[in-house]
């Protein structure tokens, strides 16, 4: 088991955004999370990547606990040092890319492996160029983010996350900030990663993509997981009323 989240509960100023959510992701699995805005799907991702702290529940990566239940029932995070180790297991691709504007494409990808993981420069360079080839961007290595299209930027962001060799990669609506004609190139890259058995969790609005790529689709609404299972079932023959409603609205 790569990721295990159990009984996650999270409130923002009295408003319960996540209500007792549990999520397990196995090696090689591609999980899509869908749902209306405000359903808590992005918050779930941010809790999984420690950008938000959970109120109660448990999180562990590769069997290593990151947050456990404390004596008073509240979540208890492990020490900063242990958390750093856990953080190296996952990567996150943002909706807004969040590339570092003052670094070239190559430096965006190479800097964290060198500065954070203290890896050998030569080796990282080889790997970064390999990643850029994979993203079909090898000729833009020296460009700066502002010189790239949104789709290209997002592919660089994916390469940057992959350069740290994470066990699991999260995507937070990776195509929502893109012009429609640019979403294809990003989805193609994610699909390619799925073919290579990369473990991924994707929050998305792209239903056809979710259907084609995922092993499992989770439908969330109002802070709970309403329905989950094989994409053909959740998207093709949902059993829950709310899922049916959502998909009907989506198609319109």
């Amino acid at each position: 088991m790569i990721l295990e989240m159990k009984g996650i509960q999270k409130s923002f100023g009295g408003l319960e955004v996540l209500k007792d959510i549990s999520l397990e992701v196995d090696s090689g699995e591609v999980v899509s999370i869908i749902g209306p805005s405000g359903s808590g799907k992005s918050t779930l991702l941010r809790c999984a990547t420690f950008l938000e702290t959970i109120d109660s529940g448990e999180i562990s990566y590769m069997g290593v606990p990151a947050a456990t239940t404390g004596p008073e029932g509240y979540a208890l995070y492990v020490s900063e040092a242990e958390l750093r180790k856990v953080k190296s297991y996952f990567g996150l691709v943002f909706q807004q890319f969040n590339l570092f504007p003052h670094y070239s494409v190559l430096k965006n990808i190479m800097d964290a492996p060198i500065a954070v993981q203290k890896r050998d420069k030569e080796e990282v360079y080889e790997e970064a160029m390999e990643l850029l080839r994979k993203m079909n961007l090898e000729n833009r290595a020296d460009a700066y983010p502002c010189q790239l299209s949104g789709g290209q930027q997002q592919r660089v962001a994916i390469a940057r996350a992959l350069a740290l060799n994470p066990a699991i990669l999260f995507f937070d609506e990776p195509t929502s900030a893109l012009d429609p004609e640019l979403t294809g190139e990003v989805l193609k890259v994610i699909r390619q990663l799925a073919d290579e058995k990369m473990t991924m969790v994707v929050v998305t609005h792209e239903m056809p993509f979710a259907r084609a790529v995922s092993n499992r689709v989770i439908f969330m609404d109002k802070g709970v997981i309403v329905e989950q299972g094989h994409p053909e079932i959740v998207l093709g023959a949902p059993t829950q009323e709310r899922t049916i409603q959502f998909l009907r609205n989506y198609q319109r």
Partner: peptide, 14 residues
């Protein structure tokens, strides 16, 4: 933007 801090945090920068 806040995203710069978040990106750095997720990438493991101290």
């Amino acid at each position: 933007p806040k995203g710069q801090y978040e990106a750095a945090e997720v990438l493991g920068y101290s």
